[in-house]
């Protein structure tokens, strides 16, 4: 029966999406460590791993398109395949943010090496890293288990990240206003907070796919 093979293919795709999620989570955890410990080697490792994630995006998108073209899926199969296309794109962007965060860590390391005036990272940055990573973990969990309750929790945390971003930006701007020599450092901090805020947005998008796959409801842009 054709369906047997189709189900095997869907299962393979599902495993690849999960694998991409695992890779991206590892990248972002690494980026967080690189940033908080200003660890150059870790940052390099994170940047290198981006290629794996990019390659997985292509594999997933190609497989999903092939399965749509050859099986004319409907109902939950169609929803899963449509979601896989979006998930691959979201996860790839999250991977990019991981790389970007690692580069910001390297930038700050360079500033310090060059003797540029810097300050310790604002205390809210570690908090923001922790919350963003936890959102990503919850979003991936909700996807794997079709758990819409966990997806709902992800939506709630997003606002906290938005607020933290604003607070950190204000703090960095006030440092820059007091001491213009710290503008480069301030710029890095503002960018880091902005990346983490974007990460939270992408985690929210992942959780929205959980709801779409489970219920067929498109809730994008409702939060």
């Amino acid at each position: 029966m054709i369906v047997g093979k189709f189900e095997i293919e869907l299962d393979k795709l599902s495993k690849q999406v999960k694998e991409m999620g695992v890779s991206v989570l590892k990248m972002l955890k690494g980026a967080g460590e690189a940033l908080l410990a200003l660890d150059d080697a870790k940052a390099t490792e994170v940047i290198k791993s981006d290629k794996t994630v990019n390659d997985l995006e292509n594999v997933i998108v190609n497989r999903a398109i092939t399965l749509i073209a050859t099986n004319q899926p409907v109902a939950k199969d169609l929803r899963f395949l449509a979601s896989s296309l979006r998930l691959a794109i979201e996860l790839e962007r999250i991977g990019d943010l991981g790389s970007n965060l690692a580069r910001r860590a390297q930038d700050i390391i360079l500033l310090e090496k060059d003797g540029e005036p810097t300050e310790p990272l604002p205390a809210d940055i570690p908090l923001m890293v922790k919350k963003a990573l936890s959102m990503l973990e919850m979003a991936l969990y909700s996807l794997e288990h079709g758990d819409t309750a966990t997806a709902e929790e992800v939506f709630q945390i997003d606002d906290v990240l938005d607020d933290l971003n604003k607070t950190i930006r204000a703090e960095a701007l006030s440092v820059i206003k007091k001491d213009g020599h710290k503008a480069a450092w301030g710029y890095e901090v503002i960018t880091i907070a902005s990346h983490l805020e974007r990460l939270a947005d992408h985690a929210t998008n992942l959780a929205e796919e959980t709801v779409y796959m489970a219920k067929g409801l498109n809730i994008r842009h409702n939060y």
Partner: peptide, 17 residues
């Protein structure tokens, strides 16, 4: 009906399971 059927029997039939 083809994107989010309400009944499991419908889902199983249209997806070929």
């Amino acid at each position: 009906l083809f994107t989010r059927p309400q009944e499991t029997q419908t889902e199983n039939y249209i997806t070929g399971r």
